[in-house]
Write a protein that binds this DNA or RNA. Structure first.
Lengths: 161, 161
DNA sequence: TGCATATAGTACGACTTCGCACTATATAGT
DNA sequence: ACTATATAGTGCGAAGTCGTACTATATGCA
């Protein structure tokens, strides 16, 4: 481990930096593994992104604009366009013009979308059973606030949309 | 929030499931944001995956096989093939036949690779300065063990290689 | 009013990751 | 020794995400 011994001006020494990298490495791997796990349990053609958006529209009223959704999930607006067009083809949402802004649209859940979400959530919960036996759920949930703080700081530090 | 009131057989109630989804949502967003942050600070044409592999090869001896690397980063072996071919084009690694197994190869860092890693790490550390001032580093690092536990359980629960 | 600038959404191409199918080599069982 | 099976790596095509560039509409200012 050939770390440098010079005094860094910015309060981060190489030793600590390595551990910070480790944090982000762990987060990246968990993200990848959990995405694969969820995806395998969703119907063919439905991605985690699809499910997440439908889920979000149920929890916070639908009628959101694509841009609001992109911001909520911290993805580029082109990505949200792609996801929404997939959801529209699946018949889970309907896009209507935004009465308050001619440039914009509003995203509405269809009945099929609501039904799908309830079924998918039930299936996911059922499949979570075996996992939940091994995961320390209490510990997992206890670190969510810390993760939220990290996320918010990273968010403010990225280049503006 | 139309949650069901039936008694689930598998120890996960819908309320808790939503919070578990929340955990993975946070992890996914942090993964995305940190990837973008790091990528913007690496030279053109060098991805986070590239840097991570080089960094790994420095920390744990080089001479690893592609499959070992794929397992270390929990990515498909085709993904590692792609990443390594990029690193080879960049001149940061060299692939040699594995003397112990004719099917396999070994990945060695070039001098250029080692130099690159030191420089890149220095740059990243310097750029981490402003962030580190706002992040609660101690809190971040304190939850790494919990993340490792989650990662290991998810890993054992995915379908084999 | 008229024009400059900002914003919402989209088309397009690049990059990353993955699954599947394939080749080459290794290993196990007979 | 021979054959069947398993494993390491790669080529190819599909899907997701992103940045750039573009169109259409909105907003601000002279």
């Amino acid at each position: 481990m050939p770390d440098e011994a010079e005094a860094p001006k910015s309060a981060v020494d190489p030793q600590e930096a390595l551990r910070i990298f480790g944090f982000f490495t762990e987060v990246g791997i968990i993200s990848q593994l959990s995405r694969a796990l969820f995806e395998a349990r969703l119907p063919d053609g439905v991605s985690v992104a699809h499910f997440s958006v439908v889920n979000h529209l149920v929890r916070v009223e639908d009628g959101r604009t694509p841009l609001e959704l992109a911001r909520a999930f911290q993805v580029a607006k082109t990505t949200m366009t792609h996801t929404l067009s997939g959801l529209e083809k699946l018949g889970l949402i309907a896009m209507k013009p935004n009465p308050r802004d001619g440039r914009s649209k509003c995203v509405w859940l269809t009945q099929k979308g609501r039904t799908f979400r309830e079924q998918a959530q039930r299936d996911l919960i059922a499949d979570l059973g075996p996992l939940s036996g091994k995961l320390d759920l209490e510990e997992m949930l206890s670190i969510v606030p810390a993760l939220e703080r990290v996320r918010k700081i990273l968010d403010t530090h990225r280049d503006p949309e």
